[in-house]
Amino acid sequence: MSEEKKDFFVSDISLSYQYTAGNATTRFLNKVAEGKLVAQKCPKCSAVYVPPRGSCPRCGVATEEELELPDTGAVESFTIVHIPIPGNPIVPPYVSAMIRLDGADISFLHLIQEIDLADIRIGMRVQAVWKDKSDWGTTLENIKWFKPTGEDDVDPSVFKFKE
């Protein structure tokens, strides 16, 4: 094979969809548009899910009961991203963290800012920093990022999933 010979071609797979969020996620996102974080609770094991997807994946039942959670929580885990990711406007280094809202049994991924990178740690208390209300839509991006509250850390054992 000669060196300059192109030995591949680029496939042009490109498909258009009208994606839907799911009934449970739609309810959740419509509340997010009002600045509220509304979780769903499992009727069997009472686990609280935020964001909800409509079922408890441990019990295989629908999570109909809804409850509003505060926008405060703790860092369950984190990573400091040093590599720029194509298409991502955030300039590294920055913190991506799994955030467990107070009262929730699962965590979700979000950013932590307004922090010295050396200070980030598991168990750190954080609170949501919301965008200006006029910019709110049906997206978790209404929360710009989370920032430390300065309260005492929580004991990481609280992150253990309830039996």
Partner: peptide
């Protein structure tokens, strides 16, 4: 109400023949 969003799925793979 539905939260329907248009979305394009692309896989510009380099295929080796």
């Amino acid at each position: 109400e539905l939260l329907r969003a248009s979305f394009k799925l692309e896989y510009p793979y380099e295929r080796s023949p």
